[in-house]
Write a protein that binds this DNA or RNA. Structure first.
Lengths: 337, 337
DNA sequence: CTGTTAGCGCCTTCAT
DNA sequence: ATGAAGGCGCTAACAG
């Protein structure tokens, strides 16, 4: 650590440390030419303020924590892009934490973020998070936190979500209008609000079309894609199913795989629609009819809300919540059958 | 900030700050029962040491920086997973920075990481990085840095890479053996070593099969997928091409799109092979024959090398570099034509 | 305009 | 076995 710090600059310039500090922060109480001299040397020596010292002193880190279930997934990848973009623009740094859908991990992460390491948190809760004491804890410590997509229903906090009920309704309606009568609904975890809301939309659509709800057509997936594919195959074999609505991307893909494995033709025997942001899904044959969430925008919006709160030292209130619209994307098949 | 800190604990326990500090670090010079008392209260008050104070004092942050071109890409997503996994295991935190393939951003990031914010860096260089002064700067400041996948050829540093020449060779050979004679090679940037090495493998394979190299069949892509698809379409329209070898995932996908747009049948008119880690590529019809990099493992390995160096205070030497093997994955088409 | 001083919270000698 | 003191590098209040 040959570290060039304020002391070093001060020595070389025959100035006091605080004068140098002020000069670099462009304080009005420092002579213009002095500022120039200071800045010149700082540039020459490539001075960079020590962020830890600065954070310690100012009680803020200019860093946020992003807590998400996973990243190997187009939705969260895009979200990170949005967040990083805004963070960079506002001079914030981004720490990333993956829960792998594990409630214990999420709690542990929350625990050690509650010590000043970050000024705020952006979070999409893990699917198993039924117990949210750890989140309440963060709230108590006054750490601003913005939930996005997978929110914690039990807490009154800022949320950036999409119109889950509505898009669930539309997706189901889409299948119904395409002639489906036995539509399966696939979700990832019963504890997740998005799964619930989308399902409510699904149920409402069924009801509006006078189709009876059948609990046998609801499948709750798990971690392993392999396992999920099995579950879906089992469903297709034991139940009469002519449509599948997958409430997350992975399940939509597993549905495709399951149909393929069973030699079911996809638009013919079973129609599939799923939440997905995968560009490549449009190249499938038939292309995956998808509900596409504005992932990048969600990341940006969530980050913006957090940063303005942080920079203006304003508290976050649930009223700042935002609901963005997901889009139903249907593409024509180029099937040559 | 009602922050519970050492002082607070010390007061409540009628101990000195240093005693508490030592107790929490399980020092042998503190009585066992005292330690117990301290730990009990710490747990009760949910004490977490202030990381900035600690970093400042110890001159290390237990944080690493990950600098990558982008994240909306299956390769880097998987890498992040691997890194986060190892980081968490070793008690490190992960800051993430995206260059968006922009050399200026990369330099700026390097600049402000060179101040103690991170103990080390994992990096995949931006495609435009012809000039690497900023990387040399980090080297000079003794910030350990491990390059992975996209390395900086001009510096003697630790690298975690894949067998690019070899896999380039194999991919090309695969197409040649499938009967291709006019194989296009798509790369993302001339400045990138991976693009070069894979191309060398491509050229060697051509030579070994006595196929002349044709510079017209080399296409260098850019940022926009849209633009790349156009370039490829143009290539397909102006040149006789019966095979495409895409050296990055995005270009493989764009190739698919281009063929579709031109109504070229994919195994028939043009065979495509590409570097890709997308699971869903197996569902395309025909499935994308892919060179799959061990992305997750690369992230883990790179992180491991960095952490052991950091924790043992050992310098990184180029000799610790690692070359992992990519796998050629061919799947049978289920085409019903 | 510039300098002095006093911490931020933690860790580490050194003394008791 | 415990405590006192100094300092990591920076900032902010207050003097001069």
């Amino acid at each position: 650590m040959s570290s060039v710090n304020l002391k070093r600059l001060a020595q070389e310039l025959n100035l006091s440390i605080s004068a140098v500090s002020k000069a670099l922060r462009d304080s009005h109480e420092i002579a213009v030419d002095t500022k120039e001299r200071v800045r010149a040397l700082a540039r020459e020596l490539r001075y960079e303020p020590n962020p830890h010292a600065s954070s310690l002193r100012r009680q803020k880190s200019k860093t946020i924590g992003v807590v998400i279930p996973e990243v190997a997934n187009s939705f969260f990848s895009l979200v990170i892009n949005g967040i990083e973009e805004v963070a960079r623009h506002n001079g914030y740094h981004v720490l990333i934490y993956l829960t792998h859908e594990d409630h214990t991990r999420e709690a542990a992460i929350a625990q050690y973020l509650a010590n000043g390491r970050v000024d705020g948190i952006l979070m999409s809760v893990a699917s198993e998070s039924a117990d949210f004491a750890h989140l309440q804890e963060l709230k108590n410590k006054n750490i601003p936190i913005v939930f996005f997509d997978r929110v914690c229903e039990e807490m009154a906090t800022v949320r950036v979500t999409t119109n889950d009920f509505e898009s669930g309704y539309k997706a189901t309606q889409h299948l119904l209008e395409a002639g489906c009568r036995r539509i399966a609904y696939l979700l990832i975890s019963e504890h997740l609000s998005i799964g619930q809301k989308r399902m409510q939309g699904y149920q409402q659509a069924l009801e509006d079309h006078a189709i009876p709800f059948d609990a046998n057509l609801i499948v709750s997936g798990h971690q392993s894609n392999e396992h999920n594919r099995m579950l879906i195959q089992q469903l297709l074999e034991t139940q009469k199913v002519d449509g599948i609505f997958a409430s997350v991307e992975r399940l939509a893909i597993s549905s495709y795989e399951a149909c393929k494995a069973l030699n079911l033709s996809i638009p013919g025997d079973v129609k599939i629609i799923g939440f997905s942001n995968l560009e490549i899904a449009s190249l499938l044959d038939p292309p995956l009819t998808a509900i596409k969430q504005p992932a990048y925008a969600m990341g940006r919006e969530a980050a913006c809300i957090l940063f303005t709160a942080l920079d203006k030292n304003r508290a976050l209130t649930a009223s700042q919540s935002l609901v963005l619209n997901s889009e139903l994307i249907e593409r024509k098949s180029t099937a040559r059958n």
